[in-house]
Every structure is written in structure tokens, then in C-alpha cells.
Design a protein around this nucleic acid. Structure first.
Lengths: 346, 346
DNA sequence: TTGTATGCGTTATCAC
DNA sequence: GTGATAACGCATACAA
């Protein structure tokens, strides 16, 4: 491919002038610039970003690592990041970690070798992460997304998971539920799942209710009924469940309905994340909505601010309790309803 | 950041030797290599990929452009691509076009400047694309995903949309449906939506049934009932609908149910794409499953084959008809249902 | 306003 | 086995 030198020769100017015609057109006489551009067109010249990156010691690339793109929460955030980054002239190098610490480290190492200008990461557990520990010794700016800031030392973009989960739980309590459980993915592997459980416990205790043990599902995006059997079929069955993410909640509704339970008649289901699809279902998913797009945009903005040396600590973003048809007051056990249950509700 | 020169100095060897210690260790004496590695560790040296890319005239980066990450179909494909690419030492530069031709062109131009080794694109309409036309003049290998190969001149990875849609329609016909409609996103903007409509018409005609006009939704990921009112409330209402993508199908089920229709009792709904979530719902989504992960992997493989000069034309991949609870035989119209509904819904 | 010269960090070629 | 050197394509300090 043609390079600046050949363009310069063809235009009858020096390499420096040809270069300027592209990177600082205002420094070059109109007529000269036109000559250069014409030559460039004829040669189908295309500036080589790699060379520019090497020369400039900056890539205008952001390294992004998310656990998985199979969860719309991350895909929706990434979608917003890409738009925001492109607007400001940055590109995204995108990777997925599958929550695997070894992969996390490999990925970040390769991104650092690629000399990305900054990193936007979502790790399994920010508190326990050896990766983040070693990253603190690097000079590449780094931002966490969804991970609570905690003690990691890195700024973080996201909502207050604990408070949000507490609000979700309180919402159910306010509706009259007393036997509320929480369902999570495997291993409680993520810091946010842990915080969400804490928020739940907090809300229960504040209402003088007894938190149930966390129910762990074998996969973090698809629910099964087996681990819940006991609590659903007991004398005092749970009347509401909170899932630590929407995918879990949605599949829980599916499984419960298939098994003959009414949602929300027999059991109310609440999600967490606010993925777009939740609004389109019937019953629509009642959930804590994290502003995924705003999180993505703010991650880009905050990172670029860091790059420019500002100490712009990103604020906690606001979550929203999105009401939905998957939640209703519990059917009063004192008034066993015959045919119906809350046909609608608020 | 430390460079090879400083590592070399510290190790008491030449730059060339230091470089060899990394890129071709076998060419260097064990003892020398150890010295180099030690120096590298002490200086926290990290090879600069950008310099290597410039020198090698190859980036080991693949430029990926999808319409949107808000549709799990693309996110799931991308997830698989990322894993496959990483396995083979490649990175992904990811962009979203929002189906906007101007954006498509900008994006590809910037990726070519970045000297990606190859492109994997999903465009709105491969037949009509000026972008693809101009891309044919470039030497960068390019692969289409989901777009039918058609006349674009580029190899393409995906399923036979026409045949798949025909199979979907036939499935409904075989169940006894005769009044079947198709629902699509706005503008029929995508070549695959068009093919899917053709497949539907083909199947209808083969069965001596009359295809209905395509129903266009204002958004391509969320259905509304208004455009369907006529066909659902007529004397001879439709008994089955095929959506051109799963998100549309799922939201259609939601809206219909909310409006008092039974799915599949009153109307059967069939999707297209096979996103993972469809299996978790109740009713589970009957759909044409495209092998998203396989498509992603095969896209990477086929592109890398192209890079190595092989003329590995990727084969059409197999779709699957995934059965689901959203589809059932039509209720015999000779037995008009009394209790009927349609009580609400706009 | 334009030209000259140099360096960004690596690797490949050629000697030794 | 190892060292010296050039080249990848661009942008800038400095001189004219």
C-alpha cells in the first residue's frame, strides 16, 4: 500500500509536508494541500494508523474485558461504549474472560502489550483479584465496570448493588411478602452477587424477617427448579424470589410456570439488571434496572478523563426499580382465593 | 516503558540478541537467554505489539462490524468469535453500525487504516452495499456473516435463510395452519429479512395457500399489536405468525398474551435465530435455530484460511428447527370458542 | 509555509 | 551464536 513518501514524491513536496496535509491541514497552504490530496487519491493512499500509534506513543484504543457477551447486560453496556468511544475517536479492543482468572490475566497482558491507552474491566471479584493487584503497579489507566469500587483502588462505574438489592427486597416486603428467597449463580463467584445478597439480608433484618440461605444455581444464566423444591413445597412456601440477574429471573419464571406455579399468583419473581427484553415479556419482569447504556458511556467518559489527567472519580449511578407483572402482593394465606388471584395489580 | 534496547544493554547483549530471546528463543544460548529474561523482568519489560505490527506489516487483528450488540444473535456470535480468535492469537476490533450505511463506511475505513488483517462484516444489505462494492477493490480479506453470499462477491458464513424460512412455514402448515402471517422489522432493510419472506411465500404457495402481506413493525426488536389488529380480529383471523427474529417473536408473545390472546391456543408464534433465551421462556420459543457460536467460529476459521491464501469457501451451515411451546396445531375453526376474549388490548 | 533529519520499538538480513 | 544495521510509516523539532 502506498505510503506518505510516495504521495509526497508524486505531489512534488517533502514527506513532512505531505504528513502535515493530513494531520495538521491548517499548517499547509491550500494549494499545496490540494496537490497532496490529489496525489493521495491517485495512489489510493490510506494513512497507516499503526505507524502513527508507534510514533505518537498512543493508540487511541481502549481495551475492554467483560465476563461474557452471552449476557445482554454486558452486550448492552458494550454497545453504548462503542458508540461513545467512536464519537471521541477511540476504538475498542474487546475480550471475554468467562470469569476465568487465568484468562483475565492473559487478556490484560496482551492488551498492555498492544499499548491500549486505557482499560475498562469487569472482573469476577475485584477484592480478590491478583490481576488488579498487579495492575496497580502499571501506569495504564484502568476503570472497573459493575464491580464495586471497594478496596481495589480503581475507580468504578456502576450502581450501589447493596442498596439496590435492599430496595428490591423492601419492595417485596412492602407488598406484604414475608417469605422471600434469593437465587444466585454458581459459587457466589462475583462480588456483586455477594453484595446483592447482603442488601437482601439487610432489608429482611430491618423488617424483622428471617433471610433465607442463598439458593445457588448450577449456571448463572439459567435457573432450575430442583434446588428450590424444598422451599416451594414446604408448609410455609416462599412467596417471592429475587434473582441476582435478569436471565436467571426470566428462566425461573419459565420453569415455575411450566411446573404449574402461577407467577406472580403463587410466587413473585424479581430480577436484577434491567435488560431490555424484560419489558417485552409477559409477565413483564419486575427488576432493578441498572442504566446499562449510561454505564457504558460513563465508563468511556471517565476513562478518557483519566487519560487527560483529570481526577474525575465517576459517581455511583442511579438504579431504578422497574415495576413489572412478575410481582404482586402475596395471596393472603388467611383468605385462600378460589379461582382467581390478583388479576392485575400495580 | 522499557524497550528492548534497554533490556539488551542491561543484559550486556545486542538488541538483536535480546529480540531473539523473545521471538526465537531456540536461536539463542540458554545462558544468554536467561540473562536477557532476567534483565527484562527487572526492567518490567513488555514487548510493544504496535512496533511489531509495524515491522511485520501484519497486526493479527480482525475488524468486526455488527449492526448492534443489543440483539443477542450478534452478541452470541461475537462471543464465539472472540474465543476462537484468541485461541489463534488474534484480537478483535469491534464496532457497531446500527444498520447505518454511512457509519458502515466510516467504520471500515478506520479499520483499514488500522491495518486489520481481515474484516468480518454483517451489513444491512449485501446486494445494495456501496461499501462492499468499494471493498472489492481492496486487498484486505473480507468475510460476510449472516448476509447471504449472493452477488456481493464475498464469501459468507451463515445458513440458507430462504430454505430455513420455508421449513419454518412448512412446519406450521404441517400442523394444520392455513392462515399464517409474517412479521418483520422496519423497512425490510435487511437482505436476510427479505429472503426469509421469500421462503415463507414459497412454502405457502407450494401448499396452495395465499401468503399474506408482510407486516412491518416500527422497530426491529420489539413488536406492537397495532399493525396486526386487522389480521387478528377479522372473520378469518390468522392462526400463526412467523417473526423474522426471535426478539420480535418473544415480544409478540408478550403483547399478545397481555392482550388476552392465548399463545399457542389462539395463535402460534414462531421465531427465527435461536437465541439462547428462547429455550428458557414459557412458552418456550419455537424457532429456526442458527448455530450462532458455530457461525462465529467458522467466520474466524474461514477468514484465517483466506489470510493464508487458501480458497476455503465456507459452506452453508445447518439450521435446526427447534420445537417449542409457542406453537401448536390450530384450534379447529369449526369449533368457535365461546368464552372469548379480546376484552382489552388496543 | 516548507524542507531536513531523527526517532518511535521491533525484526530481518547480513556479516562475523 | 551474536552483533551491526536498515527498514516498517509517520510526525515533529528545528532550520530555512
Amino acid at each position: 500500500m502506498a505510503d506518505l513518501a510516495s504521495v509526497a514524491k508524486r505531489a512534488g513536496v517533502s514527506r513532512a509536508t505531505a504528513a502535515r496535509a493530513f494531520s495538521s491541514p491548517e499548517l499547509v497552504r491550500d494549494q499545496t494541500r490540494e496537490k497532496v490530496m490529489a496525489a493521495a487519491r491517485e495512489l489510493r493512499f490510506r494513512p497507516n494508523t499503526v505507524a502513527r500509534q508507534l510514533r505518537a506513543q498512543a493508540t487511541r484504543m481502549i481495551g475492554v474485558m467483560v465476563p461474557s457477551l452471552d449476557n445482554p447486560v454486558f452486550a448492552e453496556q458494550l454497545q453504548a461504549m462503542e458508540v461513545a468511544a467512536r464519537e471521541r475517536g477511540y476504538s475498542l479492543l474487546v475480550t471475554t474472560s468467562e470469569y476465568d482468572p487465568a484468562r483475565e490475566s492473559d487478556i490484560v497482558e496482551s492488551m498492555l502489550r498492544q499499548r491500549v491507552d486505557g482499560l475498562v474491566l469487569t472482573v469476577a471479584d475485584a477484592e480478590q483479584s491478583p490481576l488488579l493487584a498487579s495492575l496497580r503497579r502499571e501506569s495504564t489507566p484502568c476503570l472497573l465496570v459493575y464491580n464495586p469500587a471497594g478496596t481495589s483502588g480503581f475507580p468504578s462505574v456502576g450502581v450501589d448493588n447493596r442498596a439496590a438489592s435492599e430496595a428490591a427486597t423492601r419492595h417485596l416486603i412492602d407488598l406484604g411478602h414475608t417469605r422471600i428467597g434469593m437465587v444466585a449463580g454458581p459459587l457466589l463467584q462475583s462480588d456483586r452477587a455477594r453484595q446483592r445478597f447482603e442488601g437482601y439480608c439487610q432489608a429482611m433484618q430491618s423488617a424483622r424477617l428471617t433471610p433465607c440461605a442463598l439458593v445457588e444455581m448450577p449456571r448463572h444464566t439459567r435457573a432450575e427448579l430442583a434446588p428450590l423444591e424444598g422451599q416451594l413445597k414446604s408448609q410455609q412456601p416462599l412467596t417471592a424470589l429475587i434473582a441476582t440477574n435478569d436471565l436467571l429471573a426470566i428462566s425461573l419464571i419459565g420453569e415455575l410456570t411450566r411446573a404449574g406455579f402461577k407467577v406472580p399468583g403463587d410466587v413473585s419473581i424479581m430480577g436484577f439488571d434491567g435488560i431490555a427484553l424484560g419489558k417485552c415479556l409477559y409477565p413483564s419482569l419486575c427488576t432493578i434496572e441498572q442504566p446499562r447504556a449510561e454505564i457504558g458511556r460513563e465508563a468511556v467518559n471517565a476513562l478518557l478523563a483519566l487519560l487527560e489527567g483529570e481526577q474525575h472519580a465517576p459517581p455511583l449511578l442511579a438504579y431504578t426499580l422497574r415495576d413489572g407483572e412478575s410481582v404482586a402482593p402475596p395471596v393472603s394465606s388467611s383468605a385462600p382465593c378460589p379461582t382467581q388471584r390478583g388479576s392485575h395489580h400495580a
